[in-house]
Design a protein around this nucleic acid. Structure first.
Length: 277
DNA sequence: ATGACAACCTGTAAGC
DNA sequence: TGCTTACAGGTTGTCA
């Protein structure tokens, strides 16, 4: 489900609702999804803690707490994090609700995940900012300090094909299957092109396309294909503006050719064979 | 470094 | 209708 634009949308939609609130209690119904420091219980570690502010790193949502710890949330495919104000708290609970946070203003933060892949991890803030997941994360695609020179330098060192490279979170943090396909479509680059085969103009197109498509995704409040909703339970709108993903058989918005869907590194890959070279 | 694939889960849609 | 298979916004581990 959630790639960078979706996680950023969740972050923004939750920020004003839960910042500076204190967690009064946590009901953890599926313990295997949650991790605290070794030897501690997740709910115990969170009870009474105040939420400072919300951050994001790649696809990880960071809930910074007092005491220099951060609750790191990864929604994986079907995770949802929805806040309900005090007057909304009787809203029927969605199925597969695995954790409920009760906040000091009477509101609730519900975490639901059909496939149980997502994780809630309490870790030291310093660590969460650098390395929220297991492997090292690459740069933030939208950060000012990711210059074209830096991107291009890293790109041409790689022999991998573009599609798997864009999905590699250690190369760039935050692209997933939808936005990888979209970035390639907008850059008019074929998913199978070896990264080191791009000339500078092509590399520039890719760099620009990645940033444009992610920013437009955020502006549209994410892509809701199936499950995704933001922190207030609202769907995004970017699915209406896609060029490639989910458009098999439809006409390419650039050249009018037919979009195809083919497997690449185990993922459905959508592209226009006519103009993506 | 790269690639291929299974595993973790449940739900839905398509195919027969 | 009912059964089977493929597939889904992700990541990780294993084995070439």
């Amino acid at each position: 489900m959630p790639e960078l634009p979706e996680v950023e949308t969740v972050r923004r939609s939750l920020a004003s609702r839960i910042s500076r609130r204190t967690i009064e209690d946590v009901e953890l119904r599926l313990p295997k999804i949650a991790f605290a420091l070794p030897g501690t219980l997740f709910a115990d570690a969170l009870r009474g803690r105040q939420i400072r502010e919300l951050g994001r790193r790649g696809k990880y949502l960071l809930i910074h707490l007092d005491g220099d710890e951060t609750l790191v949330i990864h929604l994986r495919m079907t995770g949802r994090l929805v806040h309900l104000r005090k007057e909304e708290r009787e809203t029927p609970e969605p199925p597969h609700t695995h954790a409920v946070f009760r906040l000091d203003d009477g509101s609730l933060l519900r975490y639901a995940d059909v496939r149980q892949f997502g994780t809630l991890t309490l870790m030291a803030t310093a660590e969460a900012l650098v390395q929220p997941g297991k492997g090292r994360l690459g740069p933030e695609p939208l950060a000012d300090d990711l210059s074209f020179a830096l991107f291009h330098g890293a790109l041409v060192k790689r022999k991998t094909k573009l599609k798997p490279l864009l999905l590699d979170q250690s190369f760039l943090a935050g692209l997933g299957n939808i936005y990888a396909d979209e970035a390639l479509a907008r850059a008019a680059l074929h998913p199978d092109r070896p990264a080191d085969s791009l000339d500078e103009a092509e590399s520039r197109r890719l760099y620009d396309s990645i940033r444009t498509v992610l920013q437009e995704g955020i502006d549209a409040k994410g892509t809701s294909f199936r499950d995704y909703v933001d922190g207030e339970g609202r769907k995004g709108e970017f699915q209406e503006k896609l060029w490639a993903y989910g458009r098999e058989g439809a006409l390419c918005r650039r050249c009018g050719g037919a979009i195809v869907r083919e497997k690449r590194s185990g993922r459905s890959t959508h592209f226009c064979p006519n103009c993506q070279k």
